[in-house]
Simulated assay, not measured.
Amino acid sequence: MIPDAPAPELLVTLDMTGKVADYRRTTELERAERAALDQGTTVWRGQGYTLRVSAVSAVHRQLLACCQPLDGGQGIPAVTAQRKARREYQNRVGTLAP
């Protein structure tokens, strides 16, 4: 073991609402983001679903950053349910250490 080598970053499992997951699947993704979404576990809840995603915190932050259009702007109308879904995921990602 190399004493000065940084510890490998641990995987963090967060639930991503289906609305956010659906949006992310329609956009351009990095390889790590695509792998995280493809390996996620779908949990059905009432009328929708949640995608349980395991990835390092940096990938969760990248996934969240690309969801900004769900808040509206740039010619895209804001949909209340999508804004709420993005905020929920933002709150979950916000609990991760930097």
Rank of each mutant, 00 (worst) to 15 (best):
P3S: 03
M16G: 03
Q82F: 11
V59D: 11
A85N: 07
L11T: 03
T26I: 04
L29D: 14
P77I: 01
P6F: 02
E30D: 11
L96N: 05
S54D: 06
A7E: 15
E33L: 08
Q47C: 00
G46C: 02
M16K: 04
R92V: 00
R83S: 01
E30C: 01
D71Q: 15
S54L: 02
M1W: 04
A36F: 10
L63M: 15
G75N: 09
A5K: 12
D38G: 08
R31F: 13
R52M: 03
T27D: 00
A78I: 06
H60F: 02
G73Y: 05
V56N: 06
M1V: 05
T17N: 15
A35M: 12
A85M: 09
L96C: 02
A7Y: 06
G94H: 04
A78P: 02
A81W: 00
Q82A: 07
G46L: 10
A78D: 03
T17C: 12
Q90V: 04
A7S: 12
A36I: 05
R92T: 01
P3V: 03
I76M: 10
G75H: 06
V53F: 05
A55N: 11
P77S: 00
Q62S: 15
D22V: 09
L70V: 11
Q68E: 15
A7W: 07
V56D: 13
E30Q: 09
T17H: 15
P98T: 05
L70C: 05
C66N: 09
R92D: 07
R92Q: 14
T27F: 00
L51P: 04
L11Q: 08
Y23V: 02
R31S: 14
D22C: 07
G18D: 07
D71V: 10
C67I: 08
R24Q: 14
R83L: 00
L70P: 06
L96K: 03
G48F: 11
G46P: 00
